[in-house]
């Protein structure tokens, strides 16, 4: 199973009760690739992202990250559920950034970043601290190490959230509408950090409505609607010359 694929999703199905959210998604993401997921709200793009790190359990198909099956062990024909500790271990290699930041409000910026490296990876406090300060510097917040999240702007909080995810040295980063909850003038700083991260060779899947970012940074964009992949390709082709009428309609409404 080891090949160039970081994410290999094969006919993923997910439903909440009778509500079918993902209807057989196929998605392959190469190592070092930046993929933007586009689509109207309710198209299932956030759910797909949450399935990739097993925050949601898929109902059908197979999902591999870096060659290993997420959430299950396959023995012969049967799938066995993994133990929570095994799932946690799989997740620790996948960073996730949320729309609403979800920083830990009772911890300072620095404590937010070092919590998982110390508690999950067993890093020493000194080493975790040193690394966290370095990460905070790269997201431009070295001077905010001792501030609490409530003392930061939305854009700053989101950059701390990115640093927190990077502190676990993930091999894959998932972004769930990272700029949707931000004031327009704060979006740029967050996108800059993501651009730098993309340039450094990180594999990224980004759910976004920022067409400028998708066009400029993404290697490939995937357009989803009603639980299926409608169109995918180079950003230039999909965003500027969409073939599918649904993609055309969506892009007309957002651009």
């Amino acid at each position: 199973m080891t090949n160039d694929l970081m994410v290999d999703a094969r006919s993923i199905r997910k439903h909440f009760g009778s509500n079918e959210v993902l209807k057989g998604i196929n998605l392959q993401v190469n190592r070092g690739e930046v993929l933007c997921l586009l689509g109207p709200s309710g198209s299932g793009k956030s759910t797909l992202l949450r399935c990739i790190n097993h925050l949601e359990t898929i109902n059908g198909g197979r999902l591999y990250v870096d060659g290993s099956l997420m959430g299950f062990r396959e023995k012969g024909d049967a799938l066995h559920e993994m133990r929570p500790s095994e799932i946690a271990k799989q997740r620790s290699h996948i960073g996730m950034v949320f729309q609403r930041f979800n920083l830990f409000p009772h911890l300072t910026t620095l404590e937010n970043v070092i919590e998982a490296p110390i508690g999950v990876s067993g890093m020493s406090r000194a080493a975790a601290r040193e690394k966290a300060l370095e990460l905070l510097k790269t997201v431009g917040l070295a001077d905010k190490a001792d501030a609490y999240p409530s003392q930061l702007s939305g854009g700053q909080q989101q950059r701390v959230a990115i640093a927190r995810a990077l502190a676990m040295e993930p091999k894959l980063m998932l972004f769930d509408e990272p700029t949707s909850a931000l004031d327009p003038e704060l979006v740029g700083d967050v996108l800059d950090v993501m651009r730098k991260l993309a340039d450094s060779g990180m594999t990224m899947i980004v759910v976004t409505h920022e067409m400028g970012f998708a066009r400029e940074v993404a290697d490939r964009v995937v357009f989803m609607d009603q639980g299926v992949v409608v169109e995918e390709g180079k950003p230039k082709d999909v965003i500027d010359k969409p073939q599918n009428p649904r993609t055309q309609a969506f892009l007309r409404s957002v651009l």
Partner: peptide, 27 residues
């Protein structure tokens, strides 16, 4: 405590017990 806190903790690879002790209970 907002459910986003548990999700963020999970996404960082924290176990249920660790999340409860270090993230949820203090809040």
């Amino acid at each position: 405590v907002d459910s986003g806190q548990t999700e963020a903790a999970k996404s960082l690879g924290m176990s249920t017990g660790y999340t409860l002790r270090r993230i949820v209970l203090p809040q």
